[in-house]
Design a protein around this nucleic acid. Structure first.
Length: 825
DNA sequence: CTCTCCCT
């Protein structure tokens, strides 16, 4: 008799829903039993009609375990009615009806047969994890259902999820909910000073938990560094003798992980310090207390640099709840959260889907093979972000996997079948001989898995190759990598059918350059690296690689201002010159030499942003020189040009006209003219290359050439060079302040002028500096009328005393202006 | 002073 599980109660509802709808969303909390009961329940569904059931699992371990459990329920071995397909391990037979597959496998199944002939239903288990290929699989399956397979059924299963957006995407699918089977867990929020190191706060909380509760403690920390720090804090703070500290994180050998998870052999209690790996991938037995730091580390892809880096971020509410649930598997438990209850509501509901932060190159390749031009042709729960998607398309084109049209090349189709990152796929296809292919396969397999020498500070990938060749058939982890390398080799050899091989033995570094041309790096004098993409990177000093002047940085942490190299291969100068010539381009670079005040030219051999060598160039291209000159002029402004006398005045008058109301003059400000200098100045820069050459330009002619005849006339009328005053003198107008043109004129020359002259369409009044007979300023005005009626009489009194021989009339409005002491009779 | 998790 089968054990009752909570899911059993909703199975009739699910079956009923699927008899009238093609899609369904099943929300079931952990422990409800959905993974094993739902596929078995569907076996009897009338609509299945002998077709297969495919269930998607996010992990290989989970896929195998689910298949094994279901087979046992049926009293069969795996591979009879229930089987699984994961990478490099397939157990399905001719009678297999339920296939449990992992995400990449589903993508391949869909790509090989878009109609999924013979499949009646796809179940997306643990969909809330929102892996990139899970989202992709759902988007592809949905389109297949819409265009080719209206009878295909899709079921999205999830622990915690906002069901509505997915239900809407699945054509308003019914949502079925099911309770879980966990014990209650009491939640305590622990307020701590955020300035206290996390390891200290965590350590104290662990001590308290050990004192106040029975059972084992599971602590969630963001990463290995915090795990080590907390472990050290606890060791020095002292723990009861019956307590054992254990660490748990993904880069640990599997054997060690298993030991951590297992119960203690003696009666000791254990404290497990874990990353988010213990949230759903690994279950730790015996836990009654969970302590959650509230942090996790996530990878974030930068479309700008094409690299990923790690970020420490707050967990989501869903993640925090999932972590808390780990304390309620055995009996009622306790959870401590190292944040304040008020802070909790600011946490995101769900973790961000991988789509938003991942490298999308393999997604873009799959879409191209699926046959769509833009992602918007599919329905997505979360559409791919454009910046990352475009970066991915660019990369695929550079790797030769995609045509500019967006269609895949033959190589691209093969790369997708290899099941490695498109960069590594392109490297495999670049191998010219069987020897090279073997190395490339080993490299691809190594780089597709976690580092096999995580403790090793030397980042040289050759050390890993050596270890793989030495211990590849002993260590289980290495066996997997060696098997993956062998599988890759078989696919490529099969595809090329022996018609491509030459004699060639290029190094690992040269092969890796085909995968990471943008990460070829040059060592600079201070020991830092300059990557071909133009970013800097650092590599620990005592590396074997430090003898090499070039490297390929295959793995980088792009977190800080400078990337940190995690894995690299050496490249020699000779290899750069002979093997990587395809990436090198000559560039004639012209630049403004400040000291010589002239344009200089040099020829550089460049590999991306890396300068391989540089020589001065004797006869640079004149057109390019004038480009540089123009650019310098535009940057520096008018100072580089001979703006004196007439030219300067002309420019100032044109600026004044721009202050007026007419739009035709708005292009005539100094700023606007610099911006449009490529139109009017550049033709005159041809053949020039220095500041001295520029000084010979006839700027007045150039500027006045910009004006039509009418405009010149208007300029002379409305921004004249001189003002003719009542005395008959021509007084120059100073336009150096374009808001306030000024004339300076002796007061007596102005008698009779009642209205202040206005310029630029009458918008700007002229400012008049009235001078004494000795040319000393006595008054500034832009309102002559009120000057004559008021201030004049004060001024007159004063000046009459000092210049008695001069003419100081009582009525300045009718008096005769003079440029002498007194007007001629 | 050290890199989260996962997959074709």
């Amino acid at each position: 008799m089968k054990k009752q599980l909570p899911i059993d109660q909703v199975l009739p509802e699910l079956l009923a829903a699927l008899s009238c709808s093609n899609n369904a969303v099943l929300l079931a909390e952990p422990g409800a039993g959905k993974t094993t009961r739902v596929p078995l329940a569907l076996l009897q569904a009338p609509w299945l009609r002998g077709q297969r059931i495919v269930m998607l699992e996010p992990r290989r371990l989970a896929a195998r375990a689910a298949a094994q459990y279901m087979a046992r329920e049926l009293g069969e071995a795996v591979g009879e009615r229930v089987g699984y397909r994961v990478r490099m391990d397939t157990k399905v037979g001719p009678r297999t009806v339920i296939e449990v597959v992992t995400e990449g496998v589903l993508t391949r199944m869909l790509q090989e047969d878009q109609a999924l002939d013979g499949v009646g239903v796809i179940l997306f288990d643990e969909f809330h994890e929102r892996h990139l290929h899970g989202d992709l699989g759902l988007a592809l399956a949905l389109q297949s259902q819409q265009l080719l397979r209206e009878d295909l059924r899709l079921i999205v299963m999830s622990a915690t999820l906002e069901a509505e957006p997915i239900a809407a995407l699945l054509q308003q699918a019914p949502v079925i909910r099911c309770e879980g089977r966990l014990f209650p867990v009491k939640t305590n929020y622990v307020d701590g000073d955020k300035k206290t190191p996390l390891s200290t706060r965590m350590g104290r909380c662990i001590q308290d938990a050990l004192n106040n509760h029975e059972g084992d403690v599971l602590a969630f920390l963001p990463g290995v560094r915090e795990i080590r720090q907390t472990s050290r804090w606890l060791a020095s703070a002292g723990l009861p003798a019956n307590v054992q500290i254990r660490e748990l994180y993904g880069s640990m050998p599997l054997q060690q992980q298993a030991e951590t998870v297992a119960g203690c052999m003696d009666s000791r209690r254990k404290v497990v310090l874990a990353t988010s790996i213990a949230e759903s991938s690994i279950t730790v037995d015996g836990v009654t207390v969970v302590i959650d730091s509230g942090l996790m580390r996530v990878s974030r892809f930068s479309p700008k640099s094409g690299m990923s880096g790690l970020e420490t971020v707050p967990v989501s509410k869903a993640s925090a709840d999932q972590r808390r649930g780990r304390a309620g598997r055995l009996m009622p438990g306790t959870c401590y959260r190292l944040w304040r209850e008020e802070e909790h509501r600011y946490l995101a509901d769900q973790n961000a889907p991988e789509m938003l932060s991942a490298d999308l190159s393999s997604l873009a390749l799959e879409l191209s093979i699926w046959g769509i031009a833009i992602p918007a042709e599919l329905d997505w729960v979360t559409p791919p972000p454009m910046a990352a998607y475009e970066q991915a398309s660019d990369l695929l084109q550079r790797l030769g996997a995609m045509k500019p049209s967006g269609q895949p090349t033959a190589e691209g189709r093969l790369i997708a079948r290899l099941g490695v990152h498109p960069r590594l796929g392109a490297m495999l296809l670049s191998a010219k001989s069987i020897d090279e292919l073997r190395i490339a396969c080993e490299l691809a397999a190594l780089l597709s898995e976690r580092d096999i020498l995580p403790q090793e500070r030397n980042v040289d990938i050759e050390l890993r190759l050596d270890k793989l060749r030495r211990d590849g058939n002993r260590d289980p982890a290495l066996q997997r990598i060696a098997a993956a390398a062998g599988q890759l080799e078989r696919i490529v050899v099969g595809a090329w059918q022996n018609n491509k091989w030459q004699n060639s033995r290029r190094s690992a570094g040269v092969l890796l350059a085909a995968a990471y041309p943008d990460r070829i790096a040059q060592r600079r004098s201070d020991g830092r690296l300059l990557l071909a993409v133009g970013r800097g990177a650092v590599m620990p000093a005592e590396q074997l690689l430090s003898a090499s002047s070039y490297v390929v940085a295959c793995e980088l942490d792009d977190a800080g201002a400078e990337g940190r190299v995690l894995l690299a291969a050496a490249l020699s100068q000779e290899e750069i010159d002979t093997e990587l010539a395809a990436y090198i381009h000559d560039s004639e670079e012209l630049y403004w030499d400040e000291q010589a005040s002239a344009v200089r030219a040099s020829r550089k051999r460049m590999l991306g942003a890396i300068v391989l060598s540089e020589h001065p160039l004797n006869q640079p291209d004149r057109d390019q020189i004038s480009d540089v000159l123009l650019h310098v002029v535009q940057q520096r402004g008018w100072d580089l040009l001979p703006m004196k006398g007439k030219a300067q005045s002309l420019l100032e008058r044109m600026q004044l006209m721009a202050r007026g109301g007419r739009t035709e003059w708005s292009r005539m400000t100094g700023e606007a003219l610099l911006a449009s200098a490529d139109e009017w100045l550049k033709p005159h820069l041809y053949g020039l290359k220095s500041r001295a050459d520029l000084q010979r330009l006839r700027m007045a002619d150039l500027l006045s050439g910009l004006l039509t005849w009418e405009q010149r006339k208007m300029l002379d009328e409305q921004a004249p060079t001189h003002l003719i005053v009542p005395s008959g003198s021509r007084i120059p107008i100073d336009y150096s302040n374009p808001d306030q043109p000024v004339v300076a004129v002796r007061l007596q020359e102005m008698f009779g002028m009642t209205e202040t002259p206005r310029l630029a369409d009458g918008i700007i009044p002229l400012t008049i500096h009235l001078l004494s007979p000795a040319q000393r300023p006595v008054q500034v005005t832009s309102d002559l009328k009120s000057f004559w009626s008021e201030a004049y009489f004060e001024v007159k009194k004063d000046l009459k005393g000092r210049y008695p021989k001069h003419y100081w009339p009582d009525n300045p409005l009718t008096a005769t202006a003079t440029n002498r002491a007194k007007p001629r009779k």
